[in-house]
Design a protein around this nucleic acid. Structure first.
Lengths: 339, 339
DNA sequence: CAGATACATGTAACAGTTACAGGAATACTC
DNA sequence: GAGTATTCCTGTAACTGTTACATGTATCTG
């Protein structure tokens, strides 16, 4: 394989210069840096120590991500479990601070001995994410769908479960079902919207834009939403909420407003942890297992690193599921509902 | 400093043998291994690559820990934030699987370039934890108190806040206050018990062992506890619950049993995340900030690594605090309480 | 224009690792 | 028991990547 000395010869510089480029030393001319980077990217060079090559997997997150959220915590636990089988280590990296000035992501990964990356992104950081994918580092993307890289963008399919959720509400007699989603259109939330529309369509109900609500994906967003509901003249009798934190905020604000759940309002929420058991009434929700997603992401990444195709049980897409608990009930009479 | 060649000379072996010991190669005699380890431990050798020394911090957890729990997730987020300032990386290691067979912890840390460790332990793994501390690796312990290493065992002081919590209940007129804790006696739970006793003593109330309950630290434990309460002839009117998951389970089971919180039973729980806002009624709780704990742990570890004393604002101990929400109320009349 | 300064680069000496070969002890075969 | 094969262990030497130091070049400065 490639070594510093071979790279140096090919780029027409010394080994010291190659090493300096690899470690992002400031005292190297742009010209030399360009020459070395060209050769390095060409042969996909990865530094070794002696004959030993380092093996780390990075979890790259951005400032817009709360690392302690149930979703990220679950994913990291799943990644960690998946890694143990392959004797690799998990490195936690903040995208904003992990690079030195002027350093590219692929330079940084090589410097830290990172052989594969789990990119935890959002729709807002799509460009940086795309740049990393194009640099050729083995990577798996969580939280967004990047055009041209669909096979490494893993997620949980929540469309079918979302359709099930809305059909569950319709089956309970609800004809006016609202949909509450995030202000940012990531793939997950769009999927849930598609499931909502599919269920309406299957039941012969028309989509009404006045029943579609957008709030920030946090508790306060859910509280806002309930206040808007409370002020409506022709209030929907049920709602499907596409985000975990939002539905929790809804429940607390509904209680304050004197809206009884599920008598006055049926709620199907979303849960990626165990929040549905903590609320009262316990939440009927579309659920996903974020730890399983972490394991799956690791399996996909390993298949890329070893150039082996995925094992059969890892190739299947992950699915969310509907869990019916206590926040949904049959629709009340019109007279009761609007009193 | 020490290099492989110096170690080799001092131990009377070749550099290859030293390297083999460092990397836990199986093909080295016990005698040679012993000789090399003696020298290595004597000079506290740490491998370098070229002139460059690796800088990782490890978060070492055991199988008894759920890495995705709000506590661990918060701590990891705090650690990650603290590390960014020092340009170090966080490595997540499972204590059971991170070592190769026959390898000691300190060998493993050196092999992986780990310069400091956050040991997330429990009372059940105290011996292994003690062994790591004795090996001399810079370490900070979370979740347990190890005799002789108090200054690196960081935690949040919840004793005062626990006393406040029970005094809050007594102030509301409760004279029969139960205490519910974990079946394992770790330092945190013992602290909370001490706070409970202090409040009783301050109010001139006697400690009654029949009001002390032990359940597993999960939702099911809380449910069990409420069923036991429900069956009591002389039921306490209030309870202080020393564990986050337990109090959540209590609330759901209380609802099932028809016990109204806070009318029939006042509850002060414990919260290390945002669970208190999710339950209904919102939980009056002793709260701790686990992300702050993570930052603090990192500050303590860095002060050990750099041999500098802690900055003033990091030296102060962390404190839990009482947050009064909706699960505590003034005691009802005796006639009402036992109907 | 001489001298000083800053920058970029190569040489060489260093760091750790491991393929390979060889020695020593043990096991096996006749 | 002698000869052979095997296994285990170890050191040499050749390979990784890094960086202190020296050197050359360009740009200011008086």
């Amino acid at each position: 394989m490639a070594s510093v000395r071979q790279i140096a010869k090919q780029a027409g510089v010394s080994t010291a210069t190659v090493s300096r480029v690899m470690n992002n030393s400031p005292q190297v001319s742009g010209e030399a840096k360009r020459k070395v980077m060209t050769v390095i990217n060409g042969v996909n060079y990865m530094p070794a120590v002696g004959k030993k090559t380092t093996t780390n997997i990075a979890y790259l997150f951005t400032d817009s991500i709360t690392l302690s959220s149930p979703y990220d915590a679950g994913v990291m636990a799943g990644l960690s479990a998946g890694l143990e089988q392959h004797r690799l280590d998990l490195l936690i990296l903040n995208a904003r601070t992990c690079r030195e000035s002027g350093e590219t992501f692929s330079q940084m990964f090589r410097r830290k001995g990172v052989q594969g990356v789990i990119i935890r992104t959002t729709a807002g950081t799509r460009e940086a994410c795309k740049a990393i994918l194009e640099s050729g580092v083995p990577a798996v993307v969580l939280g967004d769908q990047i055009e041209g890289y669909e096979e490494v963008c893993v997620d949980v399919d929540s469309r079918d479960a979302s359709r099930d959720a809305v059909e569950h509400l319709i089956g309970l007699g609800h004809r006016s079902v609202a949909f509450c989603t995030n202000i940012v259109d990531d793939k997950d939330h769009l999927d849930r919207f598609a499931g909502y529309q599919e269920a309406l369509s299957n039941a012969g109900l028309a989509f009404e834009s006045r029943l579609m609500f957008r709030v920030p994906a946090n508790r306060q967003g859910g509280e806002q939403f309930v206040r808007r509901l409370a002020a409506m003249v022709d209030r929907p009798s049920a709602v499907f909420v596409a985000d975990p934190a939002t539905c929790v905020g809804m429940l607390t604000e509904a209680r304050r407003q004197g809206i009884d759940v599920p008598r006055d309002l049926s709620i199907v929420g979303f849960d990626d942890s165990e929040a549905r058991f903590v609320t009262s009434p316990e939440l009927t929700a579309v659920c996903q297992d974020s730890e399983l997603l972490g394991r799956h992401a690791m399996a996909v990444l390993m298949s890329r690193l070893t150039s082996q195709s995925l094992e059969a049980d890892s190739a299947r897409p992950l699915r969310a599921w509907l869990e019916v608990n206590a926040t949904t009930a049959a629709v009340a009479d019109a007279a009761d509902a609007n009193d």
